[in-house]
Computed example of a mutant assay.
Amino acid sequence: MCRYGLKSKDLLERQGYQVDDRHLTSRDEVDVFKAKHDVKTTPQTFIGETRIGGFDDLSAHLGKVTKSKDATTYKPVIALFAVALLMAIAVTWVALGTAFTGRTVEWFISISMVLLGLQKLQDVERFATMFLNYDLLAQRWVRYGYVYSFVETGAGLLMMAGVLTWLSAPAALIVASIGAISVFKAVYIDKRELKCACVGGDSKVPLGFVSLTENLMMIGITVWMLSKL
């Protein structure tokens, strides 16, 4: 089965078209089809006798917005923070029998740190390379880009558990402070347009307000937790 053929069929049916789905069942049939219609890829969509093209062409023909693979988007970080918030509320409910307390905020930020760290740990090499674009310490000590993911994840886990705060909070405070300064310099002083490595090395999230807010949240919660020691 062709995944783009299935997507094209689904799109047409959702637009009210009756679809005559003609399968090419062998390599020879595919080659003959390509030669006949002078195309390089399949599937191909026809509306009446007019060839529309592949899935992207069909989407454009039907007025559907198709984004470039390199287009920037905030969706990954919005989804991550939304899930982190829901997880924090769920943990609060299980642990304390209520939906929201001050501890919920701590759990939200610490869970966010773990999820963000997990994104980076999926491909530490790519993250470290992207991180070099703007992080001031990584530009002076390249190995910091490799260490960062583990520090962020480990600190988040300890903060979630509420243990070894004397270790986790200072560690998070240091990396968050460096991160905030680096982002502020790159975006607001140097006026550079970069992708943020915050959700991993293949991120399309633009470096800017969201990245700065992430670091400021970490700074705020670590200062708060240190003040309670």
Rank of each mutant, 00 (worst) to 15 (best):
Y148H: 14
D190Q: 11
V19M: 07
V175C: 08
K64M: 15
G154P: 08
D31R: 08
L11M: 10
T129N: 07
T45Q: 00
L62D: 05
S26M: 11
K36V: 05
E106T: 08
L226A: 04
D31G: 02
E13Y: 13
D57T: 07
G145P: 05
K34S: 01
V142C: 08
A197Y: 05
K67C: 01
F81S: 06
L62H: 04
G53W: 11
E214M: 10
S8N: 03
L157F: 15
R51C: 05
A186T: 05
M159Q: 13
A138S: 15
R103Y: 11
T222Q: 02
L86F: 04
S112E: 00
D20L: 04
Y144C: 10
S26A: 10
T153R: 05
A197K: 06
L6N: 14
T41E: 12
L121S: 11
L118G: 13
V223E: 05
T45S: 03
Y134M: 06
N215A: 07
L115F: 15
D70M: 04
D21M: 09
S59R: 11
D190G: 15
S182V: 03
G97C: 04
D135P: 09
F150W: 15
A197T: 08
Y146V: 12
S168R: 02
Y146D: 09
Q122S: 11
I178G: 06
D31V: 11
Y74H: 10
M87Y: 06
Y146N: 07
A71L: 01
G54M: 01
I78K: 08
V199W: 14
K185A: 02
K64H: 15
C198N: 03
L207P: 09
K204P: 01
F150A: 13
K204R: 15
L121V: 10
L86T: 00
H61Q: 10
L62R: 08
D123H: 02
G200M: 06
S68Q: 10
F33I: 07
Q119R: 13
